[in-house]
Nucleic acid binder design. Structure first.
Length: 157
DNA sequence: GCTCGGATGGTCT
DNA sequence: GACCATCCGAGCG
């Protein structure tokens, strides 16, 4: 996203047949991107004011990007966020949306080229799992994943 | 450190 | 008209 970003440290999975997933109940105008090809972005507006970024995986499945350890373009992200503490730059899906200037223009864009730039980690990281955050259905599913020892989580595992 | 509640608007029933 | 995959600031300890 024009030179801003970092290391993804927290995600949540949303599957087909998952009552907490936007894809649950079939395709609508809003969630159309979720039913499209894999490896594209799915963007939606949360609570009327937060843009949230997902990666579409299998059909009707997506991974919500919940937290990033800021690495690149810190000044730009600080300006967009209006915060001084780097801890709060990208620690939460809505904060990521603001820091990366996410909006509907990215909805449905492929992830393998500009404005995205995805890389695998050099070493396989230790991934922790836990219950998802901020949902009211399928609460018990442990489909929140991330780096438990990161300082940039939206919440501890 | 914590909890609580308001802001805010698209989507779906 | 209710429901949200949220954030932030105020108030309190």
């Amino acid at each position: 996203m024009s030179g801003v970003g970092g290391i993804i440290v927290e995600t949540e999975a949303y599957l087909p047949d998952d009552a907490a997933s936007h894809s649950y109940g079939g395709m609508t105008e809003r969630n159309r991107a979720m039913f499209g090809p894999s490896a594209q972005a799915y963007v939606y507006l949360s609570y009327g004011l937060h843009w949230c970024l997902n990666f579409v995986c299998l059909p009707a499945s997506a991974v919500l990007i919940r937290a990033i350890e800021p690495k690149w373009g810190l000044e730009t992200m600080r300006e967009r966020r209006g915060v001084s503490r780097d801890r709060l730059l990208c620690s939460g899906p809505g904060r990521i949306g603001q820091a990366l200037a996410i909006n509907m223009e990215q909805n449905g864009l492929p992830l393998w080229r500009e404005p995205f730039c995805l890389r695998l980690p050099e070493a396989r990281p230790e991934i922790s799992a836990g219950a998802r955050i901020g949902i009211s259905k399928a609460v018990e599913q442990p489909w929140r994943f991330g780096l438990a020892n990161s300082n940039f989580l939206s919440r501890k595992f």
